[in-house]
């Protein structure tokens, strides 16, 4: 099963996979929105964001809304490509099972 090797290790974590899913279909998404969508703690989310950031899978923007600091994230081109590749490989792994064939758009 050398195909397993193609699955990106970065997306082994449910949370990192979730973060990238959200960033794929949105422009800038802020920390609070990610936290609410993924239902995780601040610290947990922050550490996964840092991991994705250090791989340059996403861009980070810090700004102030009134007096509150607000950090937003956007998927980078590299991140998008890696995520699409990962999705393709997941689908390839599953394409022989009927369940997925039915679910694929």
């Amino acid at each position: 099963m050398n195909i397993i090797a193609n699955l990106n290790k970065m997306f082994e974590s449910r949370i990192r996979l979730g973060i990238m899913s959200i960033l794929m279909v949105n422009d800038w998404v802020d920390f609070l929105a990610l936290k609410e969508l993924l239902e995780v703690s601040d610290g947990n989310l922050a550490s996964h964001l840092k991991a994705l950031e250090s791989e340059e899978y996403m861009e980070v923007r810090k700004q102030f809304v009134g007096k509150k600091p607000k950090t937003s994230y956007r998927a980078s081109l590299l991140g998008r490509n890696e995520f699409n590749l990962h999705l393709e490989n997941l689908n390839k792994l599953l394409s022989n099972t009927q369940e997925v064939v039915k679910k694929r758009d």
Binding site: R14, L17, S21, I22, V25, N26, L87, L94, T97
Partner: peptide
């Protein structure tokens, strides 16, 4: 199993993509 794991990954991706594009 590995397969179930992948399947549930895909489900999660789909659901998050949907949820994050809604006005909440």
């Amino acid at each position: 199993t590995q397969k179930e794991q992948h399947l549930s990954d895909l489900k999660q991706i789909r659901s998050l993509m949907e949820k994050s594009t809604r006005f909440l």
